[in-house]
Design a protein around this nucleic acid. Structure first.
Lengths: 253, 253
DNA sequence: TAAGATTTGTTCGTATGTATC
DNA sequence: GGATACATACGAACAAATCTT
């Protein structure tokens, strides 16, 4: 589950984190599953011989990591909870907050991972899933006329990839791709990464997504891989141009 | 930094997490960097008009995510902290705790990411770094004779990859590879993924690592990529055999 | 070394809120 | 609606850690 297997000289752990570790250990030892209940506060107070406040701080620690959820009322208390994908993405985004990834970094990975995902999804999606993807790809039939429209276009395109990543059988592959889509979305929202409009590239990008859905529908694995690879080359070009533009703005003013 | 941008109907947030969000916002608004100090407990109590216990729970939430560190004594208090790579790996591992990734899942990614890393590292490492990698690769010159020795061998091999990942310029690529090395190490430790000894494959694996260091030293990017690709094929075979063995043990007894 | 100041760490008692029956 | 079982929140006091002199 965790480990918290830090290094040697152990910098002194406060009682709440100690209690949190014990609770984690308690869960792992008993092999508890999602939804299984933990002892309530008063039992923990007795069990660990600490005060109410300390137990509560320990529970908040576990809650912040998404490991437990807590409900009030009779039959309430804490139970083992599933760490949601959204929470995992947020926690990981915190790690990269000060690392400032470049567009090039992200696309170095997208270029190899997205085609891999496309290939492994060919022929394994339901018609419902394929139709949903098609709807996502068909949005915004008109190329963007303004920077604001281009921003929307960009976010829409990323949501196509985000949704695709959720269909992955390989949860690790799906998570990493979804995480990158989220990072790029954040960049698009927070920074000005959406102008100037680049009609020709967007047209190609939309065509790629539609072609990809068709290839997936027909179960053409290699074809899907190749289409996605092309799509990534276009998308990278689009982002690269905008990154350069952004840099120019910063320097020029 | 975070977002916590959940979906619409908002399931009711307790006061500590509310305060934690406010503190986060406070940090982002002021663009605080690592090491910058936050207000102390009593100031926060006044600022947010909540009790000491509530403030402390909020601080534990942020601490659990690695966002702040807290010290006692004069000049103490909370400050913005760097989320360590180890903590980020632990938090992410929690997400995958119930997802049980297969060996195949992990190697689908390693096969494309590790060669990419190797290629991008060629010619950009210092002699010191290269020597350290060589030492790691040269450990265990004798093939394993027992299951226990094979386990050590496996962990040593993974630590080579973990160290390599820390040298990556691309922090995202480095993190994902390091995370996979950790997951595989955990599997090796917790489950019995190390016998029977497979001498021939291990010999090949060790040769690959030594060849890789040489290629990196000479700055041969394509060569490094190809060696790592071979290495991954061997490693996958090694793990695949052991996974089958493990499955047989579970069924057979 | 020792004393004092500062700030977090921990406990306890009490009261309030909330969901279930 | 009322009783019950549980978490939530507050406030005051004391303990421990750490810096300064």
């Amino acid at each position: 589950m965790d480990g918290s297997n830090a290094t040697s000289p152990r910098p002194k752990r406060s009682r709440p984190v100690l209690v949190a570790d014990q609770i984690k250990q308690w869960v792992v030892e008993r092999d508890l599953k999602q939804g299984d209940k933990l002892p309530n506060e008063s039992e923990m107070i007795a069990q660990f011989a600490v005060s109410k406040g300390t137990v509560r701080e320990a529970l908040r620690i576990l809650e912040a990591q998404g490991l437990i959820v807590t409900k009030t009322g009779p039959g309430g208390g804490s139970m083992v909870g599933e760490v949601s994908a959204e929470r995992a993405r947020s926690l990981l985004a915190n790690y990269f907050y000060f690392k400032d990834l470049s567009i090039a970094d992200i696309y170095q990975m997208r270029k190899v991972l997205e085609p891999e995902l496309a290939a492994s999804l060919a022929g394994s999606l339901t018609n419902e899933q394929l139709d949903e993807l098609q709807v996502l790809a068909e949005r915004h039939p008109k190329p963007a006329k303004s920077a604001e429209e281009e921003k929307e276009l960009h976010i829409a395109s990323l949501s196509f990839h985000a949704r695709l990543s959720e269909f992955a059988d390989n949860r690790l592959l799906g998570f990493v791709i979804g995480f990158m889509a989220r990072i790029l979305t954040d960049l698009t929202v927070f920074r000005g990464l959406y102008d100037p409009p680049n009609i020709e590239l967007w047209r190609k990008g939309r065509q790629h997504q539609l072609q990809l859905v068709e290839a997936l529908r027909r179960g053409e694995s290699d074809n899907a891989r190749e289409i996605m690879a092309s799509h990534m080359r276009v998308a990278e070009e689009l982002m690269r141009v905008q990154e350069a533009h952004l840099a120019r703005r910063f320097v020029g003013e």
